[in-house]
Amino acid sequence: MELREERVGDRQAVRDVQLRAFGDHGDVVAELVDSLRDVVGLSLVAEQEGQVVGHVMFTRSLLDAPRRLVDVLVLSPLGVLPDFHRRGVGSALVRRGLETLAERSVPLVFLEGDPGYYSRFGFAPGAELGFRKPSLRIPDGAFQAFKLPAYEPWMTGTLVYAEQFWRHDAVGLRTPDA
């Protein structure tokens, strides 16, 4: 399996990965990916025998820290073709992404996701690290952060998602009957 940065020619394959990886929500995720290209910090694909089988995107957002705004990244989405689940594709993409971002002096990566999955990479609950989530609809355990070597202790505050997440209503969970 080869891990590499996404190329322009990969766009349809990436869209197909997200459509299939997210099932009933695939359309929403694929549309989100397309719009996040305007604020992408890093987009990686996993390719096996010429086929894109996985994709992860890290998008630019802001941390509203007391001292100043801090450029940070949000890991979203991570998708792997169903036939390639449980083969380490997603893990390899996340690890490579974090390594690349450390080399680029990014201080922090945030995400909304399963703590049972993302804790293996060193993600921890954001609130425990001094961060506030951008929406009350995000479950506390799902709001996670990862400190990279460029992180400094004064970097605390509220995560501010890029506008595209709000436009696609891709922040937190909606209560259908509320």
Rank of each mutant, 00 (worst) to 15 (best):
R15P: 00
Q18T: 03
A21N: 01
F22D: 04
G23N: 13
G23P: 03
D24M: 11
V28F: 08
V29A: 08
E31F: 12
L32H: 04
V33H: 00
S35M: 11
L36Y: 09
D38S: 14
D38K: 15
V40L: 12
G41M: 07
L42C: 06
S43Q: 09
S43A: 14
S43W: 00
V45H: 01
E49I: 14
Q51Y: 08
V52S: 00
V52Y: 01
V52G: 00
V53M: 05
G54F: 01
H55E: 07
H55I: 07
H55P: 02
V56N: 07
F58A: 04
T59H: 05
T59W: 10
R60M: 10
S61A: 15
L62S: 05
L62Y: 02
L63P: 02
A65P: 02
A65C: 13
P66E: 11
P66S: 14
R67I: 05
R67M: 09
R67F: 01
R67L: 12
R67D: 02
D71H: 08
V74N: 08
P77W: 09
G79N: 12
L81M: 14
P82D: 06
R86G: 09
R86T: 09
R87F: 02
R87N: 06
G88R: 14
G88A: 15
V89D: 07
V89I: 14
V89K: 11
G90D: 04
L93V: 12
R96A: 09
L98I: 08
L98V: 02
T100M: 08
L101C: 09
A102H: 04
A102T: 12
E103A: 15
R104W: 04
R104A: 09
S105V: 10
S105M: 11
P107K: 10
L108T: 00
L111P: 01
L111W: 02
P115L: 11
P115F: 08
P115K: 07
G116M: 14
Y117V: 00
S119D: 05
S119V: 05
G122N: 03
G122S: 03
G122D: 00
G126L: 08
E128G: 03
E128F: 04
G130F: 01
G130C: 03
G130D: 06
S135D: 06
L136H: 08
R137C: 02
I138F: 06
A142T: 01
F143V: 03
F143Y: 05
F143H: 11
F143L: 08
F146M: 05
L148S: 03
A150D: 03
E152A: 04
E152F: 00
P153F: 13
P153H: 13
T156G: 03
G157V: 05
